[in-house]
Simulated scan of single mutants.
Amino acid sequence: MTHGNKEQKNKFLQLLALAHQIKKSELAEFWSNDKFTHSLKFHQAAFFAARHCKEHGDTTYMLKILDFFCYGSINYLKTVAWFEGRTGFNFEVTRNLIRIKTKNNKKIEENFQVLGDFLKNYKGVLPVIEQNELDEPEYIEDSNNIHSRRDSIDEFDLIDSPLRIAGKQVFGGYGTGKRR
């Protein structure tokens, strides 16, 4: 990497870090993410990320660009499509990860558009987000069924007993009116 590329990389990384800091600071109400992502500076940072990916096969800078969009949103997918056109790679998109699936995808654009214009005007096919086992929704156990699998009432400790928790169904014990 030449000295000029290192300076350019540091400049764009500082720009993206500053934008993320502003979004999370007290100035966030004055921040327009839409205006920033359609700006020439953001395009230059995205162009650098695409060129870096094409030269080195590294997608970390592309992920920094994609962090400005909600995961799975239309603009997120359009940005991935823009990266595919810029690099000539097909990408596999999963949560917090983007990998090169195949090279030489035949989607290389002849008329390179500015990213902001591409986001406004693109009406083509969007990439598909790959679902993996980690993306499946977690099963949340119902609080009413926590103690539904009990063998006998004598197995419970009195301190943690469901008999002592208010609002739970009581199956016997002192004060229930049931005989043993």
Rank of each mutant, 00 (worst) to 15 (best):
F42I: 02
V170R: 07
T176N: 01
Y61F: 15
A19W: 03
T59C: 13
T60Q: 11
S161C: 14
I65P: 00
F30T: 02
K23E: 13
K106M: 14
L97M: 07
N111D: 11
T102D: 10
K41S: 13
K9Y: 14
K9H: 13
F48I: 06
N104R: 09
E7I: 15
D117I: 06
T94H: 03
K178D: 07
D142F: 11
A81R: 15
R179L: 15
G173D: 03
F47H: 07
T59Q: 09
G72D: 09
M62I: 15
T37E: 00
K11P: 00
K103M: 14
F36D: 00
L13T: 01
Y122A: 03
C53Y: 07
E92L: 13
K9R: 13
L15V: 00
A28S: 15
I153L: 12
A45G: 09
T79N: 02
V114K: 04
Q44W: 11
P162H: 08
I140M: 03
K9A: 15
S161P: 00
I140C: 02
I100W: 08
R164D: 07
F112G: 01
A17W: 08
K35T: 13
E26N: 11
K78Q: 02
K41T: 04
H52G: 00
H38L: 02
N111W: 06
N75F: 08
G175R: 02
M1K: 13
T2R: 05
I140L: 12
F118Q: 03
I108D: 05
G116M: 03
T176L: 02
L115E: 05
F47L: 12
N5K: 14
K35Y: 08
F30R: 04
N144L: 15
D142P: 00
F47T: 12
E141Y: 08
F91A: 01
G124E: 08
I108Q: 10
L115K: 04
K106Y: 15
L15S: 01
G72R: 06
N132M: 03
K64C: 03
D142E: 12
K106C: 11
I159F: 12
L77Q: 11
T94I: 10
D67M: 06
H52T: 01
E29T: 13
Y139R: 08
Q113E: 10
A46G: 09
P127L: 07
A28T: 15
S25I: 02
K106S: 13
G167C: 00
R149Q: 09
L115M: 11
H52R: 03
E155H: 06
G124M: 08
